[in-house]
Simulated scan of single mutants.
Amino acid sequence: MASSAPGPRPPHAQSPVPVIDLGPWRSGGPAARQRIAATVDEALQAAGFLLVTGHGVDPRLAARIRAAARAFFRLPAKVKEPYAVAVGGRGWLGPGAEANSYAEGTASPPDLKESWSCAAERPTGDPAVDAEWFRPNAWPAEVPELRPLAEDYLARMQALSDELLELLAAALGLAPDHFTRHTGHPTWGFNLNWYPGTEVVGPPLPGQFRIGPHTDFGTVTVLDREPGAGGLQIHTDAGGWQDAPYDPAALTVNIGDLLARWTGDRWRAGRHRVLPPPADTPTEELVSLVYFYECDPHTRVESLPAPIGRVAHAPVDSHTYLRAKLDAISVS
Rank of each mutant, 00 (worst) to 15 (best):
A38W: 06
G48I: 02
E226H: 04
S332T: 13
D243W: 00
V331E: 11
L205Q: 15
P315Y: 10
L146R: 06
A99R: 10
Y293L: 14
E42H: 05
S318V: 12
S101R: 11
A13T: 14
V301S: 03
G184Y: 14
E132R: 13
M1V: 09
G7L: 03
T183Y: 05
R74Y: 08
A67G: 03
E151F: 09
R266W: 09
G228V: 15
G54A: 07
G270T: 09
R147T: 13
R266Y: 07
A67R: 14
R70Y: 14
R90F: 11
L160W: 05
F72H: 14
F73L: 05
A38D: 10
P127C: 04
P59V: 06
L192H: 01
R122K: 12
P11C: 00
T236R: 12
D296Y: 12
R33N: 08
P10W: 01
S115K: 13
P277G: 10
V143T: 00
A43P: 05
V220N: 12
W92I: 05
A84N: 03
A71C: 09
A43Y: 08
F209V: 02
E199P: 01
W267F: 11
A2R: 11
A68N: 11
W267H: 05
A229W: 02
V57A: 06
A128K: 15
P278F: 07
G7I: 04
R9C: 12
